[in-house]
Amino acid sequence: MFSWFANPHRFLTLSSWLAPVCYALGALLIAWGLWQGLWIVPKDEYQGGDIMRVMFLHVPAAWLAMASYMGMAMMSFIWFIWRHEVADIAAKAIAPLGATWTALCLATGSIWGKPTWGTWWQWDDARMMSVLFMFFLFLGYMALRAAMDTRQKAARAGAILAMVGAINVPLIKFSVDLFTSLHQDASVITVDGPKMAAVYLWPLLASGLGHSLLFAGLVMTLMRAEIWQRRAAQIRARLMAGD
């Protein structure tokens, strides 16, 4: 199944229509989620009033922070075992975009935290800490790839690091949870609340799916750019050899 996608040419054909579809559907879903989230749904007094409307941006970003890292690690694994070039191109494309959404998750969480907790940064919050370390994993991955002098080396080193990071994520998560559960401040309002009202659920799901589709579309476009770049480099190399 992986091999079918492994052909760059097939990927270019597939993504030429799939990426625009992702953009269109993603834009629609995000727009609907925003409209519902900002205009329609009532504010939740239990969650601190209108500030919970940040949820429709923050939660999709948090979901993508986790999902994109896992996606990158999976692509790295596939590349490492089967050496499918497209998988490496995917991992490389996911990194900067995943880092962007992870940073967005941190920033919106921080903005949400200020009126709710009275502080921009809460060391006691396990989710903030985990996402921060996720962000560092992305940064390390990108820096490592950028430091390698050949494409092949960048792919191999990146894949090793992404896999090491991925198997460490549960341990990091566990340690951070333990750390924060002992420091928990009773006055902290839990952002998830006891249960989420159904009015918020649909806009939230729409936003989450919309962001995921937009993300997938961007990854595909970035992958296309990388494939074109590699082709151009190949042709240049052949021209040089021919001279």
Partner: peptide
């Protein structure tokens, strides 16, 4: 009262 925070995030 938290309007500024919401607009800032978006």
């Amino acid at each position: 009262k938290n309007a500024a925070f919401i607009w800032a995030s978006y």
